[in-house]
Design a binder for these strands. Structure first.
Lengths: 230, 230
DNA sequence: GTGTGTGTTAACAAAATCCTTACACCGTCC
DNA sequence: GGACGGTGTAAGGATTTTGTTAACACACAC
């Protein structure tokens, strides 16, 4: 999904390798940031928040493991070490210091891509459960992931348009939304004339989520302006 | 923390390697389970719920990547491939098929331990996402590992596609899944047009797992949006 | 080869949703 | 009070989406 332009930060001082990485990853749905020193790498990691970090251990200004430790102080972004040193002890040290993977130069760039994808998979899985995606207000409960609306303990079945309408209002809960805005967001850019659509659907929506549709508690109307979800 | 006796499942047919692993990991805070065939590995993974799985690709009874795919149908336990084949294409295939790491034999056992620790770190960070090899809801029971579906106390025989369809929904139980998403996950990335596949199979599936297929309790449809497994 | 089970495809039926129209209501301003 | 702009209500046909069925293709086991 969002992998379409995953940002990779390469902290690497050898320009041939950088050029090589750039040639490979551009046009493959990745964008590549380059840092040639440890200090620059640290600051770019902080400012650009990349999805993955490729870290060369042989940097000119700092020890690679120090850079790693500094990064791990504040971020859990996947870090893949690229190193010329392939000794078992080097690998173990790197992995134990907080790296997620360790490739020995010269490495196959195809394998690197596969391992980056593994790292992105991990990151995606983590981030998954973070968004609550539930809106609550009084006896009204909207679960966006499940596409479910509860009124008290009774489920209200909404059609896609009704649901969208409610979702847009929920996103701006408490604020007034003009009919034009609702039209644009629910029916699309093209429909700017059909102002009455909104009235009709607000009516249906109220019938489904208000106890007394004639005296609405949730979807309030601001005459001359628009609607507001409390 | 729980690493004090992290359980490792080794699916590996070469007894010298098993002996070697056992010698190394015993007394280091790991306990080692051994399976010498793919089938045995699958069933032990389901019954013992190990923290990490080491998978040899050269098993006597099944293709290694098939074992991997079967595991990935229901579990996200870290899987580290151990293989004699070190070609780039082999590695890429394994990693893309859902493995978390790939070591080429002969490997250094110290490096393996470090990589296992990386895997455990990932799992620990995820934490909450408890995994079940069995999905239950009302009179419906889906055993992912055994590929079995029970309705009440009668077994429902599902075809591979029907099972996959159900498995995908079960993995997102309670949430709506779009037809496009189901198509992608069941039929593969290529089939994005054939929306009717889903309808036909949902129909067949309901006939097999619903008491009243015309009035489904489990597989609900959200018109205009997708389906949801309750 | 025959037969069984599965996957794929197309055609049609059924249901749900959407759009449209017509009209009632409720304030405000003249 | 009556006209007017904005809003609420109701209902039915058009359209889209989904359900259902059946025919065919293909593979595998016997």
């Amino acid at each position: 999904m969002t992998q379409l332009s995953a940002m990779i930060l390469a902290i690497e001082d050898e320009t041939p390798i950088l050029r090589f990485l750039r040639a490979y990853f551009e046009g493959r749905g990745f964008s590549l940031l380059e840092a040639t020193t440890g200090a620059q790498g640290l600051s770019m990691a902080a400012s650009h928040n990349p999805a993955v970090i490729l870290l060369d251990l042989g940097l000119p200004d700092m020890d690679g493991l120090t850079v790693l430790a500094r990064l791990r102080e504040w971020t859990q972004t996947p870090i893949i070490i690229l190193s010329a040193r392939g000794q078992e002890t080097d690998k173990i040290a790197g992995l134990n210091a907080g790296a997620d993977d360790y490739l020995v130069k010269p490495f196959s760039v195809g394998e690197l891509e596969a391992r980056i994808r593994v790292a992105l998979r991990h990151a995606a899985r983590q981030g998954a459960g973070e968004e609550e995606a539930v809106f609550t207000s009084g006896d009204l409960r909207v679960d966006f992931a499940a596409h479910k609306v509860m009124v008290g303990d009774r489920e209200a079945h909404l059609t896609p348009i009704e649901f969208k309408l409610l979702a847009v209002m929920a996103r701006h809960a408490g604020k007034v939304i003009t009919q034009a805005q609702l039209l644009r967001e629910v029916w699309g850019r093209s429909a700017t004339e059909q102002g009455h659509y909104v009235r009709v659907y607000v009516h249906q929506l109220r019938h489904k989520i208000e106890r007394e549709p004639a005296r609405p508690v949730h979807v309030k109307t601001e005459t001359g302006v628009g609607y507001r979800l409390e």
